[in-house]
Design a binder for these strands. Structure first.
Lengths: 270, 270
DNA sequence: GAAAAACTTGCATGTTTTTGCGGGAAACTA
DNA sequence: TAGTTTCCCGCAAAAACATGCAAGTTTTTC
């Protein structure tokens, strides 16, 4: 008899490990996230990833399409044609590399941290991929980053106000610099236009450089996300000295030749 | 009999908890805690964990949902509408009316003006329809409004920084209020949730009300965009006294009966 | 302190939603 | 054009749901 109890209790215990039952809404969220990250989804892959039949996926896609959240095509789905956010509509240059970088950089952000983040498509890809259960506080001056973060349940977002630089969809100016001068963050993640093994991070726009400099100064740890083709290029205005740089994330293997000078300077490569 | 096993098993499991029967309130607390920890709860799991029937769990979930503390879905429940796409993909309620209002309100904004604008779908519709050759300066605390405006060639945008209220996709807090306290604008355009011919504009969220109040105080002229069904409704927090209101834009004909009290008070109707 | 009222819970009932599958239509590919 | 893949439609089983009701519990009231 006692054995039976044990058995029953163990069944109950097992239930805490529960097989992964996804609610319909969760599947929908997953699909949308996947779509936003990869720009396309396949019925077949989704069926495997979510362990449901293709018919179910089709029904999901249909529902989402009816809702205007994606565009259904033969074999899968694409982002909605009329996207209210112009920034996203633009084809992202070197998206594959940026996705790779974003995936690598995910692990840098941990629970409870205060994170500074500027704009740029690489950062946006990273933000799209932050785990749903991450608890953190983000400071940013980028509109698209803020929009994306506003969808996360446990991330507090502080937006740095100021004059809006339209091309970058980010704020600049004294107000922004002032805000960052008042905080002390754990980590600062920079979408980087130019990285050089002697000059560090440089920028082409003086005002943006100004703002990024204030971000750098407010953080204990500075991380540069940069695609390889921008390594060892130079721009007029310095954002962050090479000595102030803590980590560099690229899409390359960390043993790649071009990264050697950085390794020599003690910079963490990912 | 089967039930007895269950009870017993649950005692084994919850050896730390003395009572085998949880009060309703306790169950509710447990459910909410579980939800916040895992981002989802399943009716079936909860039934096991709490050793009550699924019917009871359903009733609990329904109650919590009615209370706005979670979102009930088939199979369980999810956190209250935190999905990133809620704001932009949600079918805009009463869109037809809002478009009508936006079309009417276009003429209020003129070249060279400094305009204050808060969030809301009506304002967003207006912003979408601003003439391409308009030159103006906009102050806003709404993310979607700023994004939309950033696509406009001749409008300068100043974004009010602060803590981001995710549901509204707008910033709130002292910083925002402070910014608006320092400027003097020509016109302030409010997306309005409630308008009353005696109380004026009122809001349901205290922090949002606070921000809107600062907008009102910074402008020479206050315009309310409001769909007719929100006329003569009331919310707890006052944004703008009826005397401080200059213009009201609705989708109705200006001779409509419901607007008479406003006309009598000398408010401009459009 | 006892009767009445209100509340809570589990179960039986019938209904709705979700899901996978078969088969034929449609769309792609070569 | 032929052949494969993907889609769509209807069906059926399983799961989840709403509802009414009865039994038990708690609270109120006098």
């Amino acid at each position: 008899m006692r054995n039976n109890w044990r058995k029953f209790a163990s069944i109950l215990l097992d239930s805490s490990i529960k097989k992964q039952v996804l609610l319909k809404e969760e599947r929908h969220a997953y699909i949308l996230q996947r779509l936003s990250a990869r720009q396309k989804v396949l019925t077949s892959s989704l069926s495997e990833e979510l362990s449901v039949s293709e018919d179910t996926i089709r029904r999901d896609l249909k529902e989402l399409a009816d809702n205007g959240q994606l565009r259904k095509v033969h074999g899968g789905a694409l982002p909605p044609s009329h996207n209210p956010y112009a920034y996203r509509d633009r084809e992202v240059y070197a998206l594959e590399s940026k996705i790779k970088i974003a995936e690598k950089a995910r692990s840098l952000i941990q629970d409870g941290q205060v994170v500074l983040m500027d704009g740029g498509t690489t950062n946006l890809e990273l933000v799209k991929r932050l785990p749903q259960d991450l608890h953190a506080t983000f400071f940013t001056n980028s509109l698209p980053v803020a929009v994306q973060l506003s969808g996360h349940p446990h991330i507090e977002v502080i937006f740095a106000g100021g004059k809006l630089l339209k091309d970058a969809q980010a704020t600049i100016g004294l107000e922004v610099v002032h805000l960052f001068s008042e905080i002390r963050a754990d980590i600062c993640i920079l979408g980087t236009r130019s990285l050089h093994h002697e000059a560090g991070i440089t920028e082409i726009n003086w005002e943006e450089a100004q703002v990024k400099r204030s971000l750098v100064q407010a953080a204990k740890k500075v991380v540069a996300l940069v695609i390889s083709e921008k390594i060892d290029t130079l721009q007029p205005y310095t954002v962050c000295d090479i000595k102030g740089l803590h980590t560099v994330v690229t899409e390359l293997d960390t043993t790649d030749e071009i990264l050697i000078p950085y390794k020599k300077r003690g910079i963490v490569l990912i």
